[in-house]
């Protein structure tokens, strides 16, 4: 009998909890909503601009017609360059942090360095690129300067992903290799690193998607408003998709004529970045699930 009696207080507490949880759920739904609205507005306004021609032709008539081909190629070069420059150093950093470091001041300093680097605003990377790569090293406003600047920007992302991937490799893999007489480096190279490659690649995808969308770091170091040809050397300026979107949106000579093209370009960039992130997230989940070691 007594067990079935719910007091007034209990009922009220249950109602309060239901309301509170509903509010929490709504707040979470806001994130879904924001992503949905952004994606929807890009698709609704930009999908009609998409065509094979849009992706593979140069802009025409003062950028009021034509496609985004040079911007796509430029972004591709910048991003590939940044990853090629950053990845070896990032993996080496991760190897040292995960496999060799023994704690102490230097490790703490390097971790502070990685964390701080991750928190430096992207425009400040742009300033560094301008002052150091463009001016002091004399690379000028060029593909090389832009790729170097982006490489520094994605360095902490790659280091963290690499360290996480290496840490996920079980201890007994290392112990097994060492017990067979391998040196530390031999064990890392032949056993630990290969097991960590899926995780490292996830980080690479995240790094690419970050680098391809960044505008502020390349504004003063690499980006060109318009180029009539593709970049041929490392010292050429390049067009880049995010910069192209920015200048079209803020300086386009004919807003009404280019509106559709602008949304099309934004949709292409957003689509690429979201697909890469989605791929990385789901792949990472699969790797974590499958490799139970």
């Amino acid at each position: 009998m007594i067990a079935n009696v719910t007091t007034e207080g209990q009922r009220r507490r249950r109602i309060v909890q239901r309301i509170a949880f509903a509010l929490l759920a709504l707040s979470t739904a806001f994130g879904f909503l924001a992503l949905g609205v952004i994606l929807y507005s890009m698709i609704a306004n930009g999908a009609s601009a998409l065509s094979w021609e849009f992706l593979t032709t140069f802009p025409r008539k003062m950028m009021t017609e034509g496609g985004i081909y040079p911007a796509l190629v430029g972004s591709f070069y910048l991003t590939v360059g940044a990853v090629l420059l950053s990845l070896p150093l990032a993996v080496a950093s991760a190897i040292w942090l995960s496999e060799y470091s023994r704690g102490g001041l230097w490790v703490r300093m390097i971790r502070v360095g990685v964390n701080s680097l991750a928190g430096v605003p992207s425009i400040v990377f742009g300033l560094l690129g301008l002052a150091f790569f463009v001016k002091v090293l004399g690379f000028g406003v060029s593909l090389l300067s832009g790729a170097l600047t982006l490489a520094l920007l994605i360095l902490p992302i790659l280091i963290r992903a690499g360290e996480e991937a290496l840490q996920a490799v079980p201890m007994n893999f290392r112990e097994g290799a060492l017990a067979l007489g391998a040196t530390k480096w031999h064990a890392v190279r032949t056993v630990v690193l290969p097991s960590a490659i899926p995780g490292i690649l996830t980080g690479v995808i995240l790094g690419i998607s970050r680098a391809i969308g960044e505008t502020a770091p390349i504004m003063f170091t690499a980006a060109a408003f318009y180029m009539s040809r593709l970049p041929e050397t490392l010292s050429d300026k390049v067009m880049a998709l995010p910069y192209h979107i920015f200048v079209m949106a803020t300086e386009s000579p004919n807003y009404y004529k280019t509106r559709n093209l602008q949304f099309g370009a934004a949709l292409v960039l957003l689509g690429m970045v979201l697909l890469m992130n989605l791929g990385a997230v789901t792949w990472r989940a699969r790797v974590r699930r499958r490799k139970q070691w």
Binding site: A25, T28, G31, F32, A34, L35, I38, S41, M42, N45, S122, L206, S209, R210, I212, G213, E214, T215, A216, P242, Y243, I245, F246, A249, T250, R259, Q262, F263, A266, L269, L270, V273, L274, M276, N277, L278, V281, T282, A285
Partner: peptide, 30 residues
């Protein structure tokens, strides 16, 4: 949140964090 909703919500947050800032700017402007 139950397990599956948790995974979905975290993925959505990650996607939202990955949207380039120029796209946010463009969305804001347009």
């Amino acid at each position: 949140a139950p397990r599956w909703m948790k995974d979905v919500a975290k993925s959505v947050l990650e996607l939202l964090a990955g949207v380039p800032s120029v796209i946010y700017g463009f969305f804001g402007l347009m």
